[in-house]
C-alpha cells in the first residue's frame, strides 16, 4: 500500500520532464529581481514569493487534475467546479464588500451565471461533460464571472453611494427602487461588459488569446486553434452577461429595503463573510 503510493509519486515526479526548461525560464524572474534591486524598486521579495507560489500552486493543481482526469468520474469534475465557484465567490465578495450581503450576491451571481453558461454549452453539444473539456472551460467561465461580479458590485456600490441625492429625489417623487436606480444598474452592467465586448471585437488583431496560444504551442494547427477560440469568446460573452445581469440585480436588491429605502454602504471594515 505504502509502496504503491511511493511508486505513484516516483512516477509523477518522473512526469515533470520540463523542469530544466522551467528553470531556464526562471532566469527571467531572477533577472527581474536584479533589476528591481538595481533600481531600488523593492520588489525582490514579492517576485520571489510570486514565483514560488505560482510554482507550488500550478504543480499542485496539475497533480490534482491528473488524478481527476484518471478517475474520469463526473462527480469529481462537479466537485472541482464547486470549489472553483466557492473560491471565486469569496474573492469577488471581498472586493465588493461595500455591498450589503456581498458574499451571498457574489456566490449566487457567479454560481448561476457559470452553471447556466456551462449548461447551454453541454445541452447544445458543444462540449461533453468530460474533465478534459469541462474543467479548463469551467475555469475560464468562472474566472471571468468572478471579475464581472466584482466589477458590477463595486461600481454599483460606489454609484448608489455617490448619487444618493439623485436616487432619493426620485424615490421621494414616488419612484420604486427599481425605477430610481435604473441608471446606476445600467451603467454598472455596461461598465462590466464593455471590456469583454471590446476584447471580442479586436481579438486576433492585437494579441492572440490565451486558449489559442496554448493550443498552437502544444502543436495544434492554427485553424483548429482559432475555431476553439471562437467558441471560447462567444461563451465568455454569455458568461459575463448572465453573471453581470444577476450581480446587478442582486446588488440593487441588497441596497434597497422593501419600502423603497436606500441603505447605506456596508461598513468597509466589516468582514466579507
Amino acid at each position: 500500500m505504502l509502496n504503491d503510493t511511493f511508486n505513484t509519486i516516483d512516477a509523477a515526479l518522473g512526469n515533470l520532464t520540463d523542469l530544466p526548461r522551467i528553470g531556464l525560464a526562471l532566469l527571467l524572474v531572477i533577472l527581474a529581481a536584479g533589476i528591481s534591486r538595481w533600481q531600488r524598486a523593492d520588489l525582490e521579495r514579492d517576485l520571489a514569493v510570486a514565483a514560488a507560489r505560482a510554482f507550488v500552486q500550478l504543480i499542485a493543481i496539475g497533480y490534482l487534475l491528473e488524478v481527476i482526469f484518471n478517475q474520469d468520474n463526473p462527480l469529481w469534475t462537479t466537485a472541482l467546479l464547486a470549489v472553483m465557484i466557492g473560491i471565486a465567490a469569496r474573492t469577488a465578495g471581498r472586493r465588493g464588500r461595500q455591498t450589503p450581503a456581498a458574499s451571498r450576491v457574489a456566490l449566487l451571481s457567479i454560481g448561476i451565471g457559470s452553471v447556466l453558461t456551462l449548461a447551454v454549452l453541454i445541452v447544445a453539444g458543444v462540449f461533453d461533460y468530460t474533465p478534459q473539456a469541462i474543467i479548463p472551460i469551467g475555469g475560464m467561465i468562472i474566472g471571468n464571472a468572478m471579475t464581472v461580479a466584482a466589477q458590477v458590485m463595486d461600481r454599483m456600490a460606489v454609484d448608489l453611494h455617490d448619487q444618493r441625492a439623485l436616487i432619493e429625489s426620485r424615490l421621494a417623487l414616488g419612484a420604486t427602487s427599481r425605477q430610481a436606480s435604473h441608471q446606476q444598474f445600467r451603467r454598472a452592467l455596461r461598465n462590466a461588459m464593455i471590456p469583454h465586448i471590446d476584447t471580442t471585437k479586436t481579438t486576433g488583431l492585437i494579441k492572440l488569446p490565451g486558449a489559442m496560444t496554448g493550443m498552437i504551442l502544444a502543436g495544434a494547427s492554427p485553424l483548429a486553434a482559432v475555431q476553439l477560440q471562437l467558441i471560447v469568446m462567444y461563451m465568455l460573452v454569455g458568461a459575463v452577461t448572465f453573471t453581470g445581469l444577476i450581480a446587478a440585480y442582486l446588488t440593487y436588491r441588497a441596497f434597497f429595503t422593501g419600502a423603497h429605502q436606500l441603505k447605506a454602504l456596508a461598513p468597509s471594515s466589516g468582514a466579507a463573510a
Binding site: 441625492a165 439623485l166 432619493e168 429625489s169 426620485r170 424615490l171 421621494a172 417623487l173 414616488g174 419612484a175 420604486t176 419600502a259 423603497h260
Partner: peptide
C-alpha cells in the same frame, strides 16, 4: 403603499438634484 404615500407627501432636498 409607500409609493402612494410619497406622492402625497412631497420632499425638497438641500441640494436640488436635477435629473
Amino acid at each position: 403603499p409607500v409609493v402612494a404615500l410619497r406622492r402625497r407627501v412631497g420632499m425638497v432636498f438641500q441640494q436640488p438634484a436635477m435629473f
